[in-house]
């Protein structure tokens, strides 16, 4: 046995060194290297103002939101193994997730996580407003944040339909009914009656925005598929891109805000 400890021996192997290009983070050089050299950690600055790490100031609501988003992605992908977005199977599969699929709380984690994410996003916005962090130079990033908030609500809303129970379709019916009141674009909205050429009705229940959203006149199987695609692919992609922008701009706009 050499007098070096096993930990040190491991640290000196070629494999270890090929992965971690720095020593233990107990000095300035390595602390910088670990953050700069790791693809996940390099989202962070190497150093930041002390107020930026104080929970009392930041509440960590943004970070928590991102974490929940990641959890939702993971649980969501796992749920997709057992879920078929069709009128025949959607409900049965949800029952299966509860009754006999292993790790029976997967759906619960996903659902409650979705609710939690809405709350954390709101609180994040609240905090950012209260510390005036939208002020120059962060105006644009605030705007991105607002869009992300809207997308979070839409993610949650589109996922609400997928269990395909009474709660789901009627919540979506109530929610999507508002789309039919869109001025000029929904058949129940102001101006819809004006959009008519003779007998040819431009805005009716079979061609307005709600129809476009649902793929039908009411919440049926096409709507289920659409909401599934929106929920699992489209909105997450957009959110992912916007999150990248959001984080990038946090760094570029000077990190977490602090008194000038």
């Amino acid at each position: 046995m050499s007098d070096k400890s096993i930990v040190d021996q491991v640290r000196e192997t070629q494999v270890w060194k090929s992965i971690f290009r720095h020593g233990p983070p107990n000095n300035a050089r390595n602390r910088a290297a670990i953050v700069a050299g790791n693809v996940f950690l390099h989202l962070h600055p190497i150093k930041l103002k002390k107020s930026g790490v104080q929970l009392g100031y930041t509440w960590c609501m943004g970070g928590l939101t991102f974490f929940i988003f990641l959890s939702l992605t993971v649980t969501g992908v796992l749920l997709m193994f057992y879920y078929r977005p069709t009128a025949e199977y959607a409900f049965n599969d949800i029952v299966a997730l509860r009754e006999h699929v292993p790790l029976g709380i997967m759906r619960e984690i996903h659902r409650w996580g979705a609710h939690a994410m809405v709350i954390t996003v709101w609180l994040h916005m609240f905090r950012v407003f209260m510390t005036g962090s939208y002020k120059p130079p962060r105006e644009f990033n605030w705007g991105v944040g607002v869009i992300l908030l809207v997308l979070t609500l839409l993610l949650s809303f589109t996922g609400y339909l997928l269990p395909w129970d009474q709660l789901a379709i009627w919540a979506i019916t109530v929610g999507s009914n508002m789309a039919k009141a869109t001025p000029f674009l929904g058949h129940g909205g102001p101006g819809a009656t004006l959009a008519q050429i003779g007998d040819f009705i431009l805005v009716s229940d079979k061609n307005d925005v709600r129809f476009q959203l649902l793929g039908g006149r009411f919440v049926g199987e096409p709507a289920l598929l659409r909401f599934y695609i929106l929920h699992c692919v489209f909105i997450p992609l957009v959110v992912g891109v916007l999150i990248a922008i959001h984080f990038w701009r946090v760094r570029k706009d000077g990190g977490i805000s602090a008194p000038l």
Binding site: A87, E88, Y89, E221
Partner: peptide, 10 residues
């Protein structure tokens, strides 16, 4: 089958 209103399921 089980009546799922839009479809019948096993």
């Amino acid at each position: 089958t089980e009546d799922r209103y839009f479809k019948q399921t096993e």
